[in-house]
Simulated scan of single mutants.
Amino acid sequence: MSRRFDLAGKVAVITGAASGIGRAIALSLAARGCHLALADVNEAGLDETARLIGNSVRVTRHRLDVADAAAIAAFPAEIVAAHGGIDVLVNNAGVALGGTFELISEEDFDWLVRINFEGVVRMTRAFLPLLKGRPQAQLVNLSSLFGLVAPPGQTAYSAAKFAVRGFSEALRNELIAAGSTVGVTLVHPGGVKTSIATSARMAEGIPERLRARHQARFEKALKMPPERAGEIIVQGIERRAARVLVGTDAKLVSLIERLMPVSYWRLLGRRL
C-alpha cells in the first residue's frame, strides 16, 4: 500500500462538517483540491462551511443525523449521484455528555453512544464498499483524548471513544490481512477550541454552579485552534497514518498512559 495519498481531485465525505474540527478538515482538504460532501444536522452551519470554502472545489451539502440508521443506509446513493464515488470518509460527528455514571440517565447514555460510536460503525458499513472500489482510499475515525484515558465524569464519552478506537484498530488489521487498498486513520484530538464544552449535555442531578465550573474548566483546556487541528489531521490522511495525535496534550497523555496504564489519573487528574 502506497504511503502517500494525493488528495487533489479526490472526493471526501465529512460528518459534523458544520463547525469545529469538521469544518477545519473540510477547509484543509479543499485547499488540496479535494471535492467535498459536507454532512451535519446543522444546515446553517453547512452553508457557512461551504461559503468559506468557495468555488475552488465541488461542494455538496447534506442534512444527516448519524443517529438515524435509515438515513445513513440511503446516504451512499446520494453521494454517488452527486459525486460519482468517494475516496475519503471522515467520521467526525460527535456530542458530549457530562456527569458520573450514576447521575447520567440511560436515555442520555444511549443517545451519546448512538451518535459517537454507532454512527461511526453505520457510516463505515455503508461506505466501505465504495471505498474498496477505489485504487486508494482512506477511512478516518475521530476518537478523542478520552479514547486514550478515561477520566471520572466521562463514562459515556470515554466508552464510545474507546469503542471507536477498538473498532478502528480491529478493522484496520482486517483490511491489511485482506490486502485491501483502504487505509484506516484513527485520530485522537486533545484540547481543540470548539463548542463541544458549551454544547455538552449535563446530567440533571448536577447543581448549576457545578455545571458552570465544569464547563469553564473544560473550556480552559481547549486551546488549539480548530484550523490547526484540521491541518494536522489532513496531513495524517496524506501520510495514510494509522494514528494521529493532535496536540501536545494528546501526545503527553498517550505517553503517560503507556507508562502508568492503571494509575495514570493520579497524575493527570491534577493537570486535567
Rank of each mutant, 00 (worst) to 15 (best):
P152D: 13
T194A: 01
L38H: 02
V57N: 05
R172S: 11
A70D: 14
F127R: 03
A212M: 12
I115C: 01
P225S: 04
G179C: 09
L131A: 12
R23G: 00
L64E: 05
R23I: 02
R258L: 08
E238D: 10
M202D: 01
A163M: 06
I237T: 04
R122H: 10
V88F: 05
I104E: 10
I79C: 05
R213L: 11
A67I: 06
F5E: 05
H214N: 09
G94E: 10
A126D: 12
A156D: 09
I21Y: 06
S254D: 15
Q136K: 04
K223G: 00
L7G: 00
G16W: 05
V184D: 07
A26K: 01
V184M: 07
V66P: 01
A203G: 08
M224P: 07
N116P: 10
S19H: 11
E238F: 01
E219W: 00
R165S: 13
D6H: 13
I233A: 04
L145S: 08
L29P: 09
R114V: 00
E169N: 08
M260G: 00
V182W: 04
L112E: 11
G22W: 06
F167A: 07
G16P: 12
A50T: 09
P207Y: 05
M123F: 03
L210I: 13
G247C: 12
A216Q: 14
L112C: 04
R217C: 00
R228E: 15
D249A: 03
V234A: 04
K223R: 15
N173L: 14
D87Q: 09
L142P: 10
K223N: 08
A67H: 03
M123P: 07
G269A: 03
G230C: 10
L130F: 02
A17W: 00
I196W: 04
R3K: 05
V88L: 07
R213T: 11
L175C: 06
G119H: 03
L131N: 12
R271V: 15
L171V: 12
L175F: 09
I176E: 15
R63T: 09
R134S: 08
A77N: 09
I53P: 06
S19N: 14
R134D: 03
A216Y: 07
K132L: 11
A37W: 02
R3M: 11
G247M: 12
F5V: 06
A96Q: 09
G183T: 14
N173E: 15
V164M: 12
A156R: 12
G54E: 11
R51D: 11
L103E: 14
A37E: 11
W265K: 02
D110M: 11
L259H: 02
V80D: 13
A96P: 00
H214I: 14
S180N: 07
A70E: 13
I14V: 15
R228K: 14
E106V: 04
V90E: 12
T185K: 06
F127G: 08
A150K: 13
A241M: 01
W265R: 09
A71T: 03
R239K: 15
R3W: 01
F75V: 01
M224Q: 14
A137N: 07
V164I: 13
G20D: 09
E78T: 14
F109M: 11
L210Q: 15
P207I: 04
N141L: 08
L142R: 08
R61K: 14
E208H: 10
V120K: 02
